[in-house]
């Protein structure tokens, strides 16, 4: 990657500056919360947040401990993403292969795409109440578009050379799909899964803010109602951390696939 006018920093310099930056961030936070400009209720110190987070790991709040809330969230999340992937990827591939299918599905998809996933929440609430169906539906609506679009793209824009090589070698249609197109589309599919998983996690949070009775989003809302800012912040950090881990894991998977392909 090109560096602009600055040459890349030495590892030492990068580390030192990062430490300064991190310290600065927490320092400003600490100073702001201790200065008294903001009531302590609204801006707890970093330590208070950490203490609260640790507390929540063992002691229940709003019905469950933090790990339990996370588990509930992850459960719905897993269902929603699995559903999105298992419908989106095959459908996307099929649309990439068969033009007529693309022509049928795309107008409908494009029409619905602009509706932010979160806008499905009221319907979800009407149909599923606070049951597990609601969040799953919203996670699905967030995770589905990238899965579909990337699988579609992967299949549609497969390098013509591969198809021609397969034809020249006298490959059957079925085998072309399974042994040429699918592997060739795999990097795109995995990228779509990664983006979909990320969007799904974000949609989950939104869903849980409104239509849930358990889960980490629900916990945050309860924290807000109880004016417990440390709880809210601890919850936010937990959500952020889990989301980060999911993203990192999927990036590793993506990198692995690319490496085995000699693409990276």
């Amino acid at each position: 990657m090109a560096s602009t006018s600055q040459r890349p920093l030495s590892k030492l310099e990068a580390l030192i500056l990062s430490m300064i930056g991190l310290a600065g961030f927490f320092g400003i936070w600490l100073a702001a919360s201790m200065s008294g400009y903001v009531p302590g209720q609204f801006l707890p110190t970093p330590f208070e947040v950490l203490a609260r987070a640790t507390h929540l790991v063992a002691a229940p709040f709003a019905g469950a401990t933090l790990p339990m809330h996370l588990a509930r969230s992850l459960e719905r999340y897993a269902y929603g993403v699995a559903l999105a992937a298992s419908i989106g990827v095959p459908l996307g591939l099929a649309m990439g292969l068969y033009r007529w299918l693309d022509d049928i599905v795309t107008p409908v998809f494009d029409g619905l795409r602009f509706i932010a996933p979160i806008a499905w929440v009221p319907f979800a609430a009407l149909w599923f109440g606070t049951g597990i169906g609601g969040p799953i539906m919203i996670i699905f609506s967030g995770a589905f578009p990238p899965c579909l679009m990337n699988a579609h793209r992967g299949a549609r824009f497969v390098d013509q050379k591969y198809i021609e090589a397969a034809q020249m070698l006298g490959t059957s249609s079925l085998r072309t799909i399974t042994e040429v197109l699918l592997p060739a589309s795999l990097p795109s599919i995995i990228a779509g899964l990664r983006v979909g998983a990320g969007l799904g996690w974000q949609s989950l949070v939104g869903a849980e803010l409104i239509v849930a009775s358990a889960g980490v989003g629900y916990m945050i809302v309860q924290g807000q109602s109880n004016i417990s800012t440390p709880t809210v912040m601890a919850g936010m950090l937990a959500i952020g951390l889990v989301g980060l881990l999911i993203d990192v894991a999927l990036r590793q998977l993506e990198a692995l696939v690319r490496r085995t392909r000699g693409l990276a």
Binding site: I118, W201, Q202, V205, G206, L209, G217, I220, V221, G223, Q224, V232, G235, M236, L237, I239, G240, L241, G243, L244, D247
Partner: peptide, 9 residues
């Protein structure tokens, strides 16, 4: 990493 919606509360 904090999802934007998590900022709402």
């Amino acid at each position: 990493p904090i999802p934007p919606l998590a900022w709402i509360p």
